[in-house]
Design a protein around this nucleic acid. Structure first.
Lengths: 212, 212
DNA sequence: TAGTGTGAATGGATTCACAGCC
DNA sequence: GGCTGTGAATCCATTCACACTA
C-alpha cells in the first residue's frame, strides 16, 4: 500500500473514524453517512469523505457507508487486520498499567514480552498475564527475533530512553511508542510516536490560562 | 495574554522547546541558538524563531537565546509558572500509575484529589501520597470548589466518560485530559486534550505496515 | 432526495531569503 | 561571522461547490 502521499492528519483521523464506527456497529447501526460520523467526532463531513477517498471509493451515493465494510477497510489500511506482537520496556508504575490495559488487545496488539533493567524485578510475572515474566533488558535482541516482535512500548525514565531505543532498533524493532519525556533520535525507517503526559497538561494550562 | 491568533502547532512545540531547554539548563548550557535547539528536536531553526516571535523578541542577534530567560518566558506563556491543582477520576490501573507519576509535579501540576465510582475503593489512600484518599464521585462538585481545582485527568472506561465529564464541567473544571477511548462532547469554553493509547499504536502499525 | 466523490478555491502553517544587530 | 526577526513565497490541508448516482 502507498503511504507517502497520505497526509499525516488523515491517518490520525482514520483511527478515530474506526473507533467511532466500532461504537456504531455495537449500537446496531449498519450504515452511516459522513455527516453523522462528522457530528459525532466534530469534524466536517467533507473532510471525512476526502480522507476516505485517498484509499478508494467506499460509499454508496444517496445512502452512505456500510459500517461493517468500512471497519474492515480501515483496519486493512491501518494494518490492524492482523495481530501485532508488542514488547514493553519498563516495568515501573506506568509500564505495569500499560501491560494491564485491555484496549491494546482489543485492537489486535498482543503484549508478548516485558523488560526491565532492575534485576530485582526480573523473573517476576506481571498482573493478569501470568505467562509473561519480566526479562532482563539484555535479552531484548534474542527475544525480538524469537518472537517476531515489530513494535515496542517504552515506559522508562528519560535518561534511560535513548540507549534502550538504540538496542531496540538494532534488534529489529520497526515502530516505537515512547512515553519517556525526551526527544528520541532514530533512523528514519523506524516509526516513532511519543506521548509526554506532562506536555498534555501544559497544553491545557495554556488554553485555560489564556482565558482567565 | 492573547491566544486566539497563535497556531495550535506552535503551542504544542512550545512544550517541547521548554523540555529541551530544561535539559540544556541541567547540562549547564546557559545560551543556545535556534539551530542547536532545532537539531535536538528535529525541527527547523526558522520554525523555532517564528514560534517564539509570536510572543516577543527573546533572542540576542549573533548569540542566540539565554536558556534561563527563555525557560522563564515559555513557562509564563504556557501558564506553568504557577501551581495548578489537578484531580483524577478513575483509580484503576492507569489512574493509579498516573497518580504516582512524578513528571506532573515537576511541571507544577499538583494532584489534590482522586475519585472513583467503585465504593470498595473509596477511602483507600493512594501509593506515595498517603494524604490523598480516594473519594466517591459524588463528592466531585464540592471538592472542586473547596480545593480550587481547574484541571482534571480522566482515566475511566469509555462508557463512564461522558457523564463524568458533564459533572466535572458543571463543577467548574476548565481543562480535561481524557484517556477514555471515546470522543467527548464539551462546551467550547472547556479545553480538552485526549490521549488514546490504542490509537497511538495504530499509527505505528500504519507506518510500519506500509513499508513491509 | 440524500449523499458520495472530487476539482478548484481558500486559508493557514512552513520555509525561504534577507535585513538588521551583536 | 553568527544569529535573530520577519515579510514574501511556498506548500499543503481544509473547505467549497457541484457533478454524479442510488
Amino acid at each position: 500500500m502507498k503511504t507517502g502521499n497520505i497526509p499525516e492528519p488523515t491517518v490520525r483521523r482514520l483511527s478515530l473514524y474506526l473507533r467511532e464506527l466500532e461504537n456504531l456497529w455495537r449500537a446496531d447501526h449498519r450504515t452511516v453517512a459522513s455527516r453523522k460520523l462528522a457530528a459525532a467526532l466534530k469534524f466536517t463531513a467533507t473532510q471525512i469523505r476526502k480522507d476516505l477517498a485517498y484509499f478508494g471509493q467506499f460509499g454508496q451515493r444517496g445512502i452512505g457507508y456500510d459500517v461493517g465494510e468500512l471497519i474492515t477497510k480501515i483496519r486493512h489500511i491501518l494494518g490492524t487486520d492482523r495481530t501485532w506482537n508488542v514488547l514493553l520496556v519498563g516495568a515501573g508504575n506506568l509500564g505495569m498499567a500499560l501491560s494491564a490495559y485491555r484496549g491494546f488487545a482489543k485492537k489486535g496488539f498482543k503484549l508478548v514480552a516485558v523488560f526491565d533493567a532492575d534485576p530485582s524485578k526480573v523473573g517476576k510475572s506481571i498482573p493478569m498475564q501470568p505467562e509473561i515474566r519480566i526479562q532482563s533488558v539484555d535479552e531484548i535482541p534474542a527475544t525480538v527475533k524469537e518472537k517476531d516482535i515489530r513494535l515496542a512500548i517504552l515506559a522508562v525514565p528519560g535518561e534511560a530512553a535513548q540507549p534502550l531505543v538504540d538496542t531496540l532498533v538494532q534488534s529489529g524493532i520497526r515502530g516505537l511508542l515512547n512515553f519517556a519525556p525526551v526527544s528520541i533520535d532514530v533512523d528514519a525507517k523506524v516509526a516513532i510516536s511519543s506521548v509526554d503526559l506532562a506536555v498534555q497538561l501544559e497544553q491545557l494550562s495554556f488554553q485555560v490560562g489564556s482565558g482567565v
